[in-house]
Design a protein around this nucleic acid. Sequence first.
RNA 1: GUGGAAGUAGUUCAAUGGUAGAGCACCAGAUUGUGGAUCUGGCUGUUGCGGGUUCGAGCCCCGUCUUCCACCCCA
Length: 444
Amino acid sequence: MIDETKARSIIEPKILKGFRDFLPSMEIQKKAIITKLEEHFSLYGFVPINTPVLEYTEVLLGKGGGETDKQIFHFKDNGDRDVALRFDLTVPFARFLAQHQNELALPFKRFHIDKVWRGENPQKGRFREFTQCDFDIVGVDSAEADYEILAMMDSSFALMGVSDYQFCIAHRGLFNAFLAHLEVEEKSVDILRTVDKLRKIGEQEVVDLLQNIAGSEEKAKNILRYITKEDASEPFLATLERLSSLAGGEEEHTNRMKAIYHYLSEAGIEGHFTLDPSITRGLDYYTGIVYETFLTEIPHFGSVCSGGRYNDLASLYTKEKLPGVGSSIGLDRLLSALEELKSPILKDGSSAELVIFCLEESLYSWYDSLARQFRKQGIRTDVYLQQKKMPAQFKYAQTNNIVFGLTCGKEEHDQNRVTLKNLINREMHSMITIEEAISIIKRN
RNA sequence: GUGGAAGUAGUUCAAUGGUAGAGCACCAGAUUGUGGAUCUGGCUGUUGCGGGUUCGAGCCCCGUCUUCCACCCCA
């Protein structure tokens, strides 16, 4: 006989850089949050869609060029087609809209929670495979739509139990008007990227860089004046007026922002939003309001929820003009951040609420019938599948964070009673009826 | 993709170029129809992987993989 384990060569179990396994404790929490968000979006009348993980490379790259090219996973499939893993959920959504516009009623409100892939170098909170949670409104260009997305961001964060965050918002259109007023709009991409670094490298560094880009110290200082607040307490509307006049008395975008702020105030949530003109967003398809979300204690983690208005996203795929506004929550980054913060939101997930211990293997059928009765009541019930000594069974319950255990043997079976134990405080309820056990568990 | 630091048991960490270590966790047995105990015993491991230098490498050199950090960009 050949020793099989020795004859067979073992393949080293390993996974790719930036990719991760999720153990039950983490996956249970992630699934719970996703379920909550899905229910939440449905309450706003949003509908779920899905798109393929793999698309034609040309579809995802669009006009191509830029950073996306370098970060996208692409390869030839078995039929020699150029294919790519989706880089975000927004571009496939644009393709989806162009392809199905006749089947959809506008405005169209959709959400999509799924994985995306980027060939970036990983760091803490930055992965090559991660889950995004997108929600968008397409087919309407109005302050009401802009506001609704912001309101949903706010209620989503409240729902997830996250505290100490700040939604930073700005207006790309207003900023572009300002750059045009300064006559440096042809440099806008470089300027946007530099401005974005303000909170990282500081004012002086930004001015130096801007001076090279814009051509004069005067213009660089003007840009800095635009992107910095007079002081931290400057009110939203005062900042807005100042930006408007710096942009030469711009009205259209300013009025939009005023209207959005009005709705936020009426809803009583304006305090969660800061007008931060240094927020610009690198992606060049944004045309209106833009936003990023930082956790107060760890801003270096980067934005955990961002997005904005894009008034011509589907233009690559259709001649029809489809304005939209949307937002994306970085679920994996948010979870990493909460882990870093040791957030109490991340309680250990449990596999079940009740475990039926095995005291007598011969009573298995009875255990199973008990389990069916508990499950009928919606109680997640686990049956221990072999007769092991009790410490081992208790340990099993502990590892899986199960609160209640049913310890029943011949005595209980003969009297059709059960003995229920709270495994946390070790309180025993001996020889009670199943109905009593159910109500104790439900009360917990 | 570029640059820097690190990688030792399941985990937290030790070991001058000279024989693989400690706590916790885990498994088995010792008393069990009720626990986190004690005792005994055990696995704790090709020192991330592959080469090189050396009589001899966890340690020095090269490559590679992964993690973390910075850049780039971003969720």
